[in-house]
Simulated scan of single mutants.
Amino acid sequence: MTQPAHLFFYGVLQDGLGLDGGDWPFLQGLGLGAPATTQGALFAIPAESGWYPALILTTAQHSTIVHGSIHEASAVDIAAVDAFEGEDYTRQSIPIDGWDGYGDTEAQAYVWTADLPEGAEPIANGDFAQWLNDTGRRAYSG
């Protein structure tokens, strides 16, 4: 398990989402974030305790600009974050735009690698927080 320099979050681990808008305890040590984007397809996954997103790296149908935040991650407990994300995601390096304002930066993100479950909904605008607001649904809270 390699400690990432940067993590890109696009879902419930963003500030103000999940855990009733509070901080996730396992993210202690995570650096401040900055708005960032990547390319892919974003889907909302239903769960009993709310909705969470799935990023699929693709340039095919449903591909869009996915909005999120990039964080300095050298002091976060990456094993705890990996455990939270679970088996349906793989942490991998992806190109991110927005960190330094000069183009692509590599960051690690949790990419969905399982089959999409029944009830998954595409998020056409690539913005999970906006999708929650527009649909009135609540974020996964653990």
Rank of each mutant, 00 (worst) to 15 (best):
F8N: 00
F9I: 03
F9K: 06
F9L: 10
L13D: 00
L13Y: 00
L13M: 13
L13P: 01
L13K: 02
Q14G: 02
Q14S: 07
D15Y: 02
D15N: 09
D15Q: 08
L17Q: 03
L17H: 01
L19Q: 15
D20C: 04
D20P: 01
G21Y: 12
G22C: 05
D23P: 07
D23E: 13
G29A: 11
L30C: 03
G31Y: 06
A34N: 06
A36T: 10
T38Y: 06
I45R: 01
E48P: 12
E48M: 06
E48Y: 08
E48V: 10
G50H: 14
W51H: 15
Y52C: 09
Y52G: 04
P53W: 11
P53T: 12
I56G: 08
T58W: 05
T58G: 03
T59S: 14
A60C: 11
A60D: 15
A60N: 13
Q61A: 15
I65G: 00
I65Q: 15
I65K: 00
H67L: 11
G68L: 10
S69E: 13
H71K: 06
E72M: 10
S74V: 11
S74G: 10
S74T: 14
A75P: 02
V76G: 04
V76R: 01
V76I: 08
D77Y: 09
V81N: 07
V81F: 07
D82C: 06
D82Y: 04
A83P: 02
A83K: 13
F84P: 01
E85N: 14
E85V: 06
